[in-house]
Simulated scan of single mutants.
Amino acid sequence: MPFYDSEAIERARQVDLLTYLQTCEPQELVHVSGNVYCTKTHDSLRISNGKWCWFSRGIGGYSALDYLIKVNGYSFLEAMETISGRAAIPPPSFVPAPKEEKPKNLLLPQAAPDNRAMMAYLKGRGIDQEILDYCVQTGRIYESRNKGHGNVVFVGFDKDGKARFGCLRGISEARFHGDLSGSDKQFSFALPACVENPAVHLCECAIDVMSYATLCRLDGIDWRRHNLLSLAGVYQPKKKIEESKLPVALTRFLEDHPHVKTIYLHLDNDTAGRLAAKAIMAVMPEGYRVENKPPPRGKDVNDFLCHRLGIPIRGSHSKEPER
């Protein structure tokens, strides 16, 4: 039976899990986004910033030694033998911790005395009254006015119910679009399911999300039982698609909803939308199923809704993304 002195044990404990997997089990390592990784065997085990956490089991640690014992079920001696026998493992590279970003302070504009112009505008886009009422009651939409110009304010929340994202869309012919100061696209406009649903439906903008919910109503489907998420505008992948990262809104949603494993893409029927869908399908980590389901007619989900309802399509030839 091998004997390991305190120095050998300390050296083994210095080997972080990312270094171990990159060197010894690269086939087990799956890139999620940014500096976040998971393993092929356990997709709920996340590795980031020198730490790892197996969320489904509620355990975590820092070193490869901890991982071999807690996750793979090795004895302490077996784990030591495994790490000590890997002479090729380089010493861990300590990267300075990134500067902690101050939380963004979202500045929401003052609400108008009423929502009449906003409601008329969204009804003109075909949005169902039940969905409008829900969004108003939950603070996801409201009307603001600036120098006589009316806007719809779309609001996105984090998992604790705090408003973290906001964008404006003009409801006059001026067609103003813009994100609010302090807005964080990780928490874009969404209609989360009222039950635990293993899928999410992804659209480009908030009006498309509301349009998809309306289409569900028309088909007799309970839209409240589905996760509907906006990308808060056009997603721009890298020139080399395989080098792209997932949209931040989708990454955050999947991290906050680990039970979601299926993604339905309802992106626009234009060059940008098709490219975005191709990139998302290419870089989605293993363990997820992605289905590309663009609108069957029209440029986007709202166009298809308007076609179906037989109402005019607003600005269909000059529609800009909500940024």
Rank of each mutant, 00 (worst) to 15 (best):
D128W: 07
D219T: 07
L229H: 02
Y20C: 03
G273N: 01
V30E: 09
R145M: 07
N146P: 05
V248L: 15
V301C: 13
F3N: 10
K240G: 07
G58V: 14
L254N: 04
H177E: 10
C38Y: 00
P294G: 05
N146D: 14
L309W: 05
A111G: 08
K245L: 15
V290K: 01
G85K: 06
F189L: 06
S6P: 01
C38L: 04
Y264H: 10
E100G: 02
N72I: 11
L45R: 03
Q236T: 15
S6A: 12
N35D: 13
L180H: 01
W54F: 15
G124F: 13
A87Q: 12
G73T: 10
V283A: 05
T251C: 13
V153N: 00
M284K: 02
E81M: 06
R164Q: 07
M281Y: 02
S172A: 01
A88R: 08
H257S: 11
V301N: 06
S63C: 11
S63N: 09
K159M: 09
H266W: 06
V195R: 06
S244V: 09
W223C: 07
S211P: 04
L17N: 00
G315K: 14
F253E: 04
L309Q: 15
S44K: 14
H42P: 00
P2L: 12
Y142A: 05
A120S: 13
F189Y: 11
E291A: 10
D208I: 00
V248C: 14
Q236S: 12
V195D: 02
D208M: 01
F189D: 04
A12F: 01
L218S: 03
L29Q: 01
K238N: 15
R252T: 15
A112Y: 15
K238Y: 11
L250D: 09
L168D: 00
K293M: 10
Y142W: 09
P113R: 09
C306M: 04
R314Y: 15
P92T: 12
P90H: 03
A174W: 03
G220F: 06
E10Y: 10
